[in-house]
């Protein structure tokens, strides 16, 4: 199965059921995964920072999103085909050190920001694999909607 990789600060949405969307190793970054089980459309946004440092203009392919611009852009990408009630949402990543000052706990900032935005907009999070001292990547199979986590030792976990 062909794998299409999302770079950090970007998102990919697809209805191609022959592919898997995968992230690079996330570190403290947060992957927001959305799957529309009815339309078989899936997307992954990978954010490194809570707020964008770039001016987001139209569909500029060079834009690196923060959560504040990335989440609206990701949801917009599902429209008009998808309905909100068909979304399955997963959060993956946000690794953190054993202890660190808040400036370096970017995973926690990302996770709190994402859950705040999603909850405020009445989206339910179906599953998550977040935080802890783990560097992982995420895979979304467009055909099945299956989400898997891959750890640096190659181990895969179905979410």
């Amino acid at each position: 199965m062909e794998k299409v990789t999302v770079q950090k600060g970007k998102f990919i949405i697809s209805n191609d059921t022959t592919i898997e969307i995968v992230t690079e190793f996330l570190g403290a970054s947060l992957a927001v995964i959305i799957y529309d089980r009815v339309e078989k459309i899936g997307g992954i946004l990978v954010c490194m920072i809570p707020k964008s440092l770039m001016l987001v203009m139209g569909n500029d392919k060079n834009v690196r999103h923060g959560l504040n611009t990335g989440l609206p852009a990701l949801f917009k990408g599902f429209m008009p085909n998808s309905k909100k009630e068909n979304f399955e949402i997963y959060l993956v990543g946000a690794g953190s050190f054993l202890s660190s000052p808040p400036q370096f706990d970017i995973g926690d900032q990302l996770y709190r920001t994402a859950t705040h935005i999603l909850t405020k907009n009445k989206f339910e999070i179906k599953g998550e694999h977040i935080k802890w001292q783990i560097n992982r990547s995420a895979l979304l199979n467009i055909e099945s909607g299956e989400v898997k986590i891959r750890l640096t030792d190659g181990q895969e976990i179905k979410l």
């Binding site: 950090k8 690079e24 190793f25 996330l26 570190g27 403290a28 970054s29 490194m48 690794g95 050190f97 370096f104 970017i106 995973g107 560097n135 640096t152």
Partner: peptide
């Protein structure tokens, strides 16, 4: 490490 470029 935050960037995901530390392994092991």
């Amino acid at each position: 490490t935050l960037m995901g470029l530390s392994y092991g």
